[in-house]
Simulated scan of single mutants.
Amino acid sequence: MTDAPKRTPLYDLHVALGGKMVDFAGWEMPVQYPMGIMGEHKQCREKAALFDVSHMGQVILRGDNVGEKLEAICPQAYATLKEGKARYGFFTNEDGGIMDDLIVSNAGDHYFVVVNAALRHQDIPHMKAHLDGVEVTEIFDRALVAVQGPAAENVVGDLCPAAREMKFMETIVADIDGVECRLSRLGYTGEDGYEISIPDADAERITKLFLAHDDCEPAGLGARDSLRLEAGLCLYGNDIDQSTSPIEASLAWAIQKRRKEEGGFPGADRIQKELADGAAKKLVGIKPSGRAPARQHVEIQCAEGNTIGEITSGCFGPTVGGPVAMGYVAAPHGKTGEQVKLIIRGKAHDAEIVALPFVTQNYKR
């Protein structure tokens, strides 16, 4: 017997809004609404879209020197993360692979961490086992919604004026219609926006207030995937996993200079060696020339017909107006402009390696 999928505090609202519900990482989540994936994607790029991300793990870390202790299990510089700031990062294993990616925020008297839904069963015990003297508490009584798009500042700011003053990767606690919420100016669509942690009891009411704005519509998992792929953002389990190093995944930018130099985190030997000498493979953007999307595991061949890698994520990119993909290729390949072949259902299709992201990221710097 398997456990029935869990439901977020917004489940009834999704159903009322016509959301098509699917099982995702053990949760019943909307994959799309009547507007459709293409419409929801366009809504996010041009106005604002609201996503329920309550299935993600929300964790509070309390204790002395939390940031410093996090540096023993993450390659990021969390000891110097300023109060009110958030930082993208990841846990690495002893082989230099990525255990999970996450967002860590310095909330002043504690650190606030958001981890992937499918890996909370791994991440929470991992932090409890390795953060000596730190109280690790997973929050189960708060929803998490993401309002994303160029109109997100107005959608959220009309209800919470303090949100307008925030910059990318900043976090605050603020009042929204009488409710204390945590707002972080970030997201995973490539657009400006916020993730808002709301007490369960008020989640549906506050979400309806956002959706009442003329420029805001609900969006599901389908649009979330096409948006993040166009923005060149990795999805755990597709583009990064336990065997993938941050250097292979083109995530060296997420390891601060001090950490690159001093090491002291799991897998540092491999990661520092790859920083110095290069990795055996690398993640690249791929633009198929036809209309057929190249899905995960599609073989990539060089012009001479030799296998050089495989696709990890692929879909139709509504903003791009054609298929887009990401995948790993052997290090000697992967230069922007290189012509490659994609083997889709036994047939070779022309494609080109392109720079990521496919669309400009529009964060509020």
Rank of each mutant, 00 (worst) to 15 (best):
P5L: 03
R7F: 04
T8K: 10
P9Q: 07
L10C: 09
Y11C: 04
G18L: 10
V22G: 04
F24W: 13
M29W: 05
Q32H: 13
P34S: 10
M38V: 13
G39C: 05
G39Q: 04
C44D: 01
K47H: 13
V53F: 07
M56R: 08
R62G: 07
D64R: 15
G67F: 04
A79R: 15
K82E: 15
K85W: 05
A86M: 12
G89I: 07
N93F: 05
E94L: 11
G97T: 00
G97Q: 05
I98D: 04
N106E: 07
A107G: 11
H110C: 08
H110D: 03
H110N: 09
H110M: 09
V113D: 08
V114S: 02
V134M: 14
V136C: 08
T137D: 08
E138V: 10
I139S: 12
L144P: 00
L144E: 06
Q148W: 00
A151F: 00
N154Y: 10
L159N: 06
P161F: 09
P161V: 09
E165S: 14
M169A: 13
E170V: 04
T171M: 15
D175N: 15
D175C: 05
V179W: 06
C181W: 05
L183H: 03
S184F: 00
G187A: 07
T189G: 08
D192P: 00
G193W: 01
S197H: 11
I198N: 00
D200E: 11
K208L: 14
H213L: 06
H213P: 02
C216H: 03
A219D: 05
D225H: 10
L229T: 01
N238Q: 12
D239I: 02
I240K: 03
Q242S: 12
Q242C: 08
Q242G: 11
T244L: 05
A254G: 07
K260V: 03
K260E: 07
D269C: 00
R270W: 00
R270S: 08
L275K: 10
L275N: 08
A279M: 01
V284Q: 05
V284T: 04
V284G: 01
P288M: 06
G290M: 03
P293C: 06
R295G: 07
R295T: 13
Q296W: 01
V298I: 15
E299C: 07
I300W: 07
E304R: 14
T307D: 14
I308P: 01
I311F: 06
T312N: 00
T312P: 02
T312C: 06
C315P: 03
F316P: 01
P318E: 13
G321Y: 05
G322F: 03
P323N: 02
Y328K: 07
V329S: 06
A330S: 12
P332A: 09
G334E: 02
K335L: 09
Q339C: 08
I343Q: 04
A348K: 13
H349M: 08
H349E: 09
L356N: 06
R365I: 06
